[in-house]
Design a protein around this nucleic acid. Structure first.
Lengths: 270, 270
DNA sequence: CCAAAAGTGTTGCAAATACACCCATGA
DNA sequence: TCATGGGTGTATTTGCAACACTTTTGG
């Protein structure tokens, strides 16, 4: 009985769009490339805590869920790839360029379009580095939110964000994806802060060091960085970019990441 | 310059459909519920080899790729969930009911629709048990193929199958998904044959036994099964269904599998 | 000197592997 | 009886977690 005006579309194809979960770290977790002291949104955590993950959301200006916050997205055209569509949606709403972009899941079905038109969303998730994240000028309708303090969100977008965070937490364990959240050169402490922010817990510095070094994915630059009244730390870089990923992504590796890699190489390898 | 008649659709939304990669084992790998001796397609492997994975394909009767084999699929309506659409596509083309169904990936973009209309495919992958697989009467336009001997396939469907196999190989390591490929009760040797077929290599029986038993996901039935001129093997069953999966699928677990579970409980818990 | 983080060493535990060995059965 | 797979025992290795310890710097 409700949804009367929608019933005529019940057997047609649903609308199709892409959305993006964009994730970045605050200053505390990644001091490598940063110089200033204040984090996003003037919400810098105390310096002895773990860093936090943030994401930009867009305020809806239409019904349904008017005034709620939603993931950046756009309709889907047929002349570009799905990944390019996600890349463009990200770029046009935030003017940022991701360091990593991967398909997350496709959501659809009548349950998620309460009162609205049927909608299928192909959702991607992206990582942006510290420097890139700072280029976003927060406006009235696009703002950063900490993932552990999300606002009232539209549709099922909160569940989608949760799923993206779950995927990131898993993927950081077996891939070199953390490389997309630190600068080109970094100390092991800085890299550890990234892991701590993603996993949401502190890690043993000694064991973390050994785990990273024995994985053979890092190489020393020969440079050192002094950061306080203590011994300077060696700077490292990732040796080959995305070595582990390709193994794990299997046959899908060939179908993805072209645009992101191009964008990153264009800006001098991240 | 080519594709002239398609160019007018270039900026519209692409068509949307679901496809399914349906996987099953041959007799050698799963003797639990079977009685006969011949495997699918009269291609029973020698009894000392590992079993193989098979999937049903549909022969195309239209251009493009006329005569090639393709994944079962259907268009997408907006009054049912994506999973229900995949379930229905599987059921209507093969008359089988899956024991497992999960979204695999969404494929799209202009590159994959050579000469045809732009097409986005939401692909699911499914597992069917031995008994269910035997209900499929092979016709002229739907047949079983071994995954290591695929025919000429339409579109990018061969890459999609490879990705589904990769996902299965990974998932069998950390979830109880193998339960969907064996019968209700099984010996550890039979369960091992499933793992061997999926992973494509032989496993140490002693270590496999210990790994399974210490995982606490199996329980003994008290029954035994004699299978040759040697000591009879104890029969086991999976204790709680899908215990590990839910942990690993995280927040997504709530959004999926309702229909498959219903279908399986309807037929007495698989 | 001393605080504080960088970096090293040591121990113990848990899981996976390799492989030797007994057990129970049907032919 | 003996061949065959079911089932157990055990040594070795590996990676990880815990934590004590040494080193190097700035103040």
């Amino acid at each position: 009985m409700p949804l009367g005006n929608v019933s005529e579309r019940r057997h047609g194809a649903p609308d199709l769009g892409v959305s993006v979960v964009i994730l970045a770290l605050d200053k505390r977790a990644n001091i490598a490339s940063g110089l200033g002291k204040s984090a996003h949104h003037d919400d810098a955590p105390a310096s002895n805590e773990v860093g936090r993950l943030w994401l930009p959301l867009v305020k809806r200006v239409k019904q349904p869920y008017l005034g709620c916050w939603a993931l950046p997205g756009a309709g889907l055209r047929s002349d570009i790839s799905l990944e390019d569509a996600a890349f463009t949606a990200l770029e046009s709403t935030t003017a940022m360029h991701p360091h990593y972009l991967e398909q997350l899941y496709t959501f659809g079905g009548p349950a998620r379009s309460q009162g609205g038109l049927p909608m299928v969303s192909i959702v991607y998730w992206a990582l942006v580095g510290q420097a890139e994240a700072e280029t976003l000028h927060e406006a009235n309708n696009v703002q950063w939110f900490a993932t552990d303090a999300l606002p009232e969100m539209a549709f099922d977008h909160e569940a989608i964000v949760d799923y993206a965070l779950w995927r990131l937490r898993n993927k950081i364990e077996y891939s070199s994806i953390a490389s997309r959240l630190v600068g080109n050169e970094f100390t092991l402490a800085q890299l550890r802060h990234v892991y701590e922010a993603v996993l949401g817990k502190a890690l043993d510095p000694a064991n973390f060091r050994r785990r990273m070094l024995t994985s053979d994915s890092l190489q020393q630059t020969g440079k050192y960085q002094a950061e306080g009244r203590h011994r300077p730390a060696a700077l490292y870089r990732y040796s080959a970019d995305t070595p582990i990923e390709e193994i794990y992504e299997g046959s899908l590796a060939a179908l993805t990441s072209h645009k992101v890699l191009a964008a990153n190489t264009a800006r001098q390898h991240r």
